[in-house]
């Protein structure tokens, strides 16, 4: 006798969904669970035994000066990159959106130029930045000296290095955020601007506050989450330009994770860092999903 229709359909569902679920379990959920378990041990890569240490790894990350430095540096980096990258991207997008009406080709070329850092490998770009910012032979300091301004050690001054990295991070992310803002601007119905003109919002500033800014609201939230996600992941510039130095002044979460896990083989501690990073990413990703849902805005 053939199985009932209900059973056959259930089997089909299982056949369609099963392989994907199995792969996700094996490649994502199980490793995450293992990392979570490891984060409660003092396991070292290659060791034959380990000891349960409870929350000690987490405690260390948030109390040990070096661990704390990585956390605060990352937060500071994110706090600098988000507002500056978004403001600059919005200004560039507004400018290029206007320019596209009169000189579409020039606007297109500039858009491509702003997008280049996004498309380029950041490791390769980091070399270019290293040359530019070299304290004695770099062109940036050469210009500053010509102007009679002090020429700082951009990448080896403890008080400055994180800001330098943040500036590079901003430079790198403006192009991507600009594209998102441009898409948001293009989606604003022209009639709203015309209605605003009829209603008396004639100055550029009034138009911006009456139509552009509110209509960009969902895009702006989305851009903020994307920028935060990418800023939390900062690694390439740190690894290639400073290695977290000098004296951990530019150490960040992901770089610390790399150092502890792959240089010192402290798998337990690295796992704890990973878990913290994982939770932050999880929260941001959930926020991102929620915002994408809300893109059908003002309902």
């Amino acid at each position: 006798m053939r199985p009932g229709r209900r059973i056959r359909e259930a089997l089909t569902d299982l056949w369609l969904v099963g392989p994907g679920v199995a792969a996700m379990l094996a490649l994502i959920f199980v490793p995450v669970a293992l990392v979570a378990v490891l984060s409660f041990t003092d396991y070292q890569f290659g060791a034959r035994s380990f000891r349960w240490v409870g929350l000690e790894n987490y405690h260390r990350l948030f109390t040990d000066p070096i661990g704390r430095k990585a956390v605060t540096n990352t937060l500071l980096y994110v706090a600098i990159v988000i507002p500056f990258s978004m403001t600059l991207a919005l200004l560039v997008a507004l400018g290029l959106h206007r320019l596209a009406q009169t000189m579409p080709r020039l606007s297109g070329i500039l858009q491509a130029a702003y997008f280049l850092p996004v498309a380029a490998t950041l490791v390769a770009m980091a070399i270019a930045w290293q040359m530019l910012l070299h304290p004695s032979i770099g062109p940036v300091n050469a210009v500053l000296k010509q102007l009679g301004l002090p020429a700082p050690d951009w990448l080896s001054d403890r008080g400055l290095v994180l800001y330098t990295l943040a500036a590079i991070g901003i430079w790198q992310s403006v192009g991507y955020n600009m594209v998102l803002f441009l898409a948001g601007l293009a989606a604003i119905p022209r009639h709203l601007y015309e209605a605003a003109a009829v209603d008396g919002a004639t100055r550029g500033w009034e138009r911006f506050w009456t139509v552009t800014w509110p209509m960009l609201g969902p895009t702006t939230l989305f851009v903020a989450v994307i920028t935060a996600t990418n800023a939390f992941r900062v690694f390439e510039t740190v690894a290639t330009l400073t290695r977290g130095g000098p004296a951990f002044a530019s150490d960040t979460l992901v770089y610390a994770l790399y150092r502890e896990g792959f240089v010192y083989f402290k798998a337990g501690y690295a796992s704890a860092i990973t878990m913290v990073f994982f939770v932050v990413m999880m929260v941001l990703t959930l926020a991102q999903f929620a915002l994408i849902e809300r893109r059908v805005h003002y309902r």
Binding site: P189, H191, E194, A195, V198, T210, V211, P214, M215, Y298
Partner: peptide
């Protein structure tokens, strides 16, 4: 003169209401 200075009012085909207000 701008539309506001002409003191004209317009009703658009798409209504063009501000969706956030």
């Amino acid at each position: 003169l701008t539309p506001a200075e002409r003191n004209v009012a317009m009703v658009f085909q798409s209504y063009a209401l501000y969706p956030h207000l």
